[in-house]
Nucleic acid binder design. Structure first.
Lengths: 189, 189
DNA sequence: GTCTCTTGCCTAATAGGCGTAGCTTCCTGC
DNA sequence: GCAGGAAGCTACGCCTATTAGGCAAGAGAC
């Protein structure tokens, strides 16, 4: 019988594609097996279990998102960096809704510590170096940025902004502008 | 046989309690039936299906949350209103994590239109009357508030703020303060 | 070119969730 | 005291998750 060439890596990668197509909550071991033309049970040599698959997709997404954000940040500072970073987030979520949802999966502390999650926080702090914030304000600001980015992106993904004017893009630009002003400590504009 | 006294209403209510106890994603028709000491199939006289149960819980949560927010808002304006509203959101999410998660369920357009979702938007606009924002800024601001509240609350619920100083409460106060300044059009403070 | 051994995918089987069909039994109105 | 409907039941079919054990394809030794 022709072998399908399954590996943990390939399964996670295919799982991520599946997530983008059908939604992260519909990623199942069975669906993944179907995609490879293989029996469900066959995946268990390469996967701990269903949860492990989901965790793998989450880790992949966190890594990809961190890579994109890092690229976007390269050579930028201040408002420029803020916007590039924010857009990296939003674009990733729009292009890869399933992966983005996966990235929000609650990980156990050890897994989380070994994930790219830390890079995300580091990058936000790097952006904030362009503004003048000492601790504990800097931590507060990291949390604010995380909240706004995640909140906006997930409300947009849920369709919250799609049935009213103005468009989601305009509000996004306004939000980033106001956020920049807020961090600079001024706001009239 | 002793009747359990099932009704759609009671099932949804019990489903909401179950959600708070075990998490919204673990609410199942079977678990609900067990809770009533009844066979799974018996619930289908009162429930369309599993999705209908979840939708019911979502609608209940939206309603409850709107009621709380309305209470919090009564007699307040400006910054006071902003903080009361924000705290109503956060407190509800902390007391009822399962219900809060349910409230984020994506509803089909008709259901969404008939839900308390509109009240939420109306209340945000009411708060913004205390600030000086014309359209389209007002809509942008509604989206910003929604993003920050939802984003902060969901990151906090995911444990994102629990393993570092300062505490989530302090950041929350800072965020509300900055948000108020941002909306007022000033920010040094 | 054959032997054998590992590995990769298979079948079989259990357990649990969702949902439908059709049955029984209790309660109510008359 | 009976007819009819509502409430919950049994039985079933299908889907997903997961474990255990089997067999054959391909790799390396000779």
């Amino acid at each position: 019988m022709a072998r399908a060439g399954l590996t943990g890596e390939r399964l996670v990668r295919a799982g991520a594609e599946l997530a983008d197509e059908v939604g992260f909550e519909h990623v199942t071991v069975s669906a993944l097996a179907r995609r490879f033309g293989v029996r469900t049970a066959s995946l268990y040599s390469h996967l701990e279990n269903s949860q492990g698959l989901k965790t793998g997709i989450a880790l992949l997404a966190l890594e990809e998102l961190a890579d994109r954000a890092a690229d976007a940040l390269a050579g930028r500072a201040g408002r420029d960096a803020l916007e590039a970073f924010a857009n990296a987030y939003r674009d990733y979520a729009r292009e890869h809704p399933g992966r983005y949802a996966a990235a929000r999966l609650r990980l156990d502390p050890d897994t989380a510590a070994a994930s790219a999650g830390g890079r995300h926080a580091q990058m936000m702090r790097a952006i904030l170096r362009g503004y003048d914030l000492a601790e504990p304000e800097q931590t507060h600001a990291v949390r604010l940025l995380g909240s706004v980015f995640h909140g906006y992106v997930s409300l947009e993904a849920a369709g919250g902004f799609s049935h009213s004017a103005p468009g989601a893009q305009e509000s996004w630009a306004w939000v980033l502008d106001r956020l920049d002003a807020l961090l600079r400590g001024r706001s009239a504009g």
